[in-house]
């Protein structure tokens, strides 16, 4: 058991280190890489959890990459997992930036480095769009009118009207609250009743 736990922590650290060292661009880039690694490859999270964590990471203060690694780390291996994931996320930029700022002039004016970086942008665009197509498809397949509306409206708001991301997240959350209030499916108002979750024994203890 102990061996397995150390192994998990090590994999978590290495995965975040590797992802963080190669993800240029904003927070959504690293989230797409994390989805490929932790959802598709290691199966530590499901796609819904990854999307929930992205929304939470985006809504909290601080860098999205750091926030997302905190959430994934806690989920996978508790406090030690969180620390390993954060360390893996912040070490590569610290090391790379320290090196680059020493050789800044050389780096900034080098034509070959510029060519590599420009080419990598094409790859990054392809990766983000690939993940969005997969996730968009899974929303489409559920055929939930409200969710389809939210997806279309959020896309128009951010892509065409450049509305602040926080405003978009808040509006989607408000729609969620409104839908919960409309939902009268249970015999008693269901808002505050915990569903049974076989994975989470602590919850049941406390609600007893």
């Amino acid at each position: 058991m102990k061996q397995g736990k150390t192994q998990t922590l090590f994999t978590l650290f290495l995965s975040m280190f590797y992802i963080s060292a190669f993800t240029f661009g904003g927070g959504f880039v690293i989230v797409t890489f994390m989805k490929r690694k932790f959802v598709d490859e290691l199966h530590w999270l499901d796609e819904q959890e990854m999307l929930d964590m992205t929304a939470l990471a985006q809504s909290a203060p601080g860098a999205i990459a750091v926030n997302a690694s905190i959430l994934v780390g806690w989920k996978v291996a508790g406090m030690p997992g969180m620390l390993c994931a954060v360390l893996g996320t912040i070490l590569p930029p610290m090391l790379i930036l320290s090196l680059v700022s020493v050789f800044y002039r050389l780096f900034a004016e080098n034509r070959y480095i510029a060519l590599v970086l420009k080419g990598m942008q094409s790859g990054v665009a392809a990766i983000i769009l690939d993940v969005s197509i997969s996730m968009g498809n899974s929303v489409l397949q559920k055929k939930n009118t409200v969710h389809l509306f939210i997806m279309a409206a959020a896309f128009a708001a951010t892509f065409f009207f450049r509305i602040n991301v926080i405003v978009i997240i808040l509006c989607a959350a408000l729609i969620g609250i409104f839908m919960a209030l409309l939902d009268k499916s249970g015999p008693v108002p269901p808002l505050l009743r915990l569903k049974k979750d076989p994975n989470d024994r602590e919850d049941r203890h406390e609600s007893d």
Partner: peptide, 25 residues
């Protein structure tokens, strides 16, 4: 996470997050 209110909020956030990622791409 299993509280119906929070479930409803999270399930409304997911399509919005997909749209945000697609727009960034």
């Amino acid at each position: 996470r299993t509280l119906p209110l929070l479930q409803s909020i999270l399930s409304s956030l997911r399509p919005a997050v997909v749209a945000l990622i697609a727009s960034a791409g």
